[in-house]
Nucleic acid binder design. Structure first.
Lengths: 186, 186, 186, 186
DNA sequence: GATGAATGAGCTTTCATTCAT
DNA sequence: AATGAATGAAAGCTCATTCAT
């Protein structure tokens, strides 16, 4: 009757932590907070993750993989990004806030873009394909990458701040168009 | 002998805090850290700022004003942004990291864009002017604003992460062009 | 298939604990450490010893018996002591370090010399024999006992600390002679 | 009116810790225990010692110096040792128990005899003088050193265990004589 | 204004022990 | 007998904040 495997339990913890970290921030969220929400004891938490930092690192990996799996086209990316922002907002939130701002805890084995690479790989493929097919003009990869990540991240942020007068979906068209304009061959 | 006014002392503290917060993160930086760097006692710090959170709020205000004063045109914005990233990196860093990720401490009196408004105001004027003159196509303000902020912020981040193969300046042209393409009337 | 009796299993645990306690210290060594080394589960450990303290008490008993069995003459004692220090260093180590320094855990039923008595008994017999035969001068027992235990223990300690320039055996002669000089009838 | 200097406060802490460590053991004694006994807050304790281990290291130094100052002759040594055992028992207790058995915490900068050197130096001088004057036979230093330390330590231990039927002083004569016999030229 | 010793709540982490399986 | 996930009290330590001087 041991229905819940150790792996599933880990996932539950990750999921919960994701939610709390993005809601309250990394430092504000305590291990007792997480344990309580998951419904386990503080001590038991440490049977799954040896420290708070280790948890944070696994979290980043988890998100990156989740992101990288389905990115193909601009609109798809935008849609997916915003869907995620609606359905699993803590994922993007987490990425923007916790990772970017607490890079200090990702020192070992997660330097820079290392942990985000699956997502980046997909991105690169997208640009290569686009340029190869002649649809996108052959510009520097990072100029383009920054455009994507920053733009989308910024919109989600504005949304989260309740500054946008319309729902996120409402902007998909114009954003995709802007990105397309920015990148397409003239 | 009291040559240093209370206001100047505050500015020194803000400046130092800015540097430390962006270097080490908001929660990692302690009040003793700041006091030591400034060269004053911990107790005295509290004569200038009643709490760490209050300090953080005044910081945001400080940056916003600094940013808002000189924005007029795209290229100018990009240049200024990157110059700042070079000369006073802690300002942008701070904005990206500390503010975006520790919004929890800005609860009172600094909700949303309130504290950032001077910068935003300038931004709006820029768009209005552009649209009025017919040079920019009349799109939603936030679609455009997110593009700017996210894009530039993302590039600085990539630069800070030492991921960019070239110096920031190197990208100014293509970025400005991308933004211009994205926003200009077709 | 139950080839290993409960008693043998206990001995294995005691032996392992002895090694770990003397290597790392009583408080540093955890029950999981011991269980792992023995190759059993933490839970099962408690089928053999009801607590960590109980284990410690049985350990002392175990060592005392082991020591007491072969003491007859000075040189023999010294040799045996040093042999043990070479072959089963954890025994002496344990005696010196864990027992002497963690007496707090031996409160009940192991006060003072009670648990060490087998060894002491042998010691007493040795002195009695010596005095009776006229070879040793009739001095207070404890003056003599302290000499033995302290001296040998001290040497093993110095050896363990790698302070002695020569191997332990090298000192056997002079130590035996010193002890003999100290105790013999003049 | 600031009558108590920071240095005096440190000494108070050391003194108190010494007492508690030797009474209850190093691991049993908690920082709150010490702070409470001293009459200060836990947090403030850390203004004086950055960790429990650092405290332990300074303790050893403190004792060694205290010991090393007055050792000249055998009887004097024995007397001093026993006086100390009577008046400041925690010092010797500490040396025997906490240091010998918790060497693991003295890893950095306190390896082996390093921290005990003042005492050892005095000891060496004593032996050299004795040998030079012809009164002591020229034997290996460590054989002799182990004799001293072990013997005296052992007696104090037996005393502390309430095993000795007489007060420590009672044994001074015979012990000194034993040591003298052991070391003197024949 | 300035100092820094003092406070104490609260954090992360550990580990002896239990108990459902 | 055996397992190891679960428990929770308690440890070491940090740091924003206060306050006597």
């Amino acid at each position: 009757m041991a229905r819940i495997s150790k792996e599933e339990r880990k996932t539950t913890i990750i999921s919960t932590a994701l939610k709390l970290f993005s809601e309250k921030g990394f430092y504000i969220t305590t291990i007792p907070d997480i344990a309580k929400q998951v419904g386990m004891s503080v001590g038991n938490f440490y049977n799954y993750f040896t420290s708070k930092d280790v948890l944070a690192k696994e979290l980043i990996l988890y998100i990156s993989e989740y992101l990288g799996k389905s990115i193909r086209e601009i609109y798809e990316i935008v849609s997916m990004y915003f869907n995620m922002a609606n359905e699993r907002p803590e994922m993007i939130e987490y990425f923007l806030r916790v990772y970017l701002s607490n890079r200090e805890v990702f020192g070992d084995g997660c330097e820079g873009m290392l942990c985000v690479s699956p997502f980046v790989t997909e991105m690169m493929m997208f640009f290569n394909d686009g340029v190869e097919s002649g649809e996108l003009h052959n510009q520097d990869f990072f100029s383009a990458f920054g455009l994507f990540m920053g733009y989308l991240g910024g919109m989600v942020f504005l949304f989260g701040e309740k500054i946008l007068p319309e729902p996120l979906e409402w902007y998909k068209e114009s954003i995709s168009q802007n990105i397309y304009n920015a990148l397409k061959t003239r």
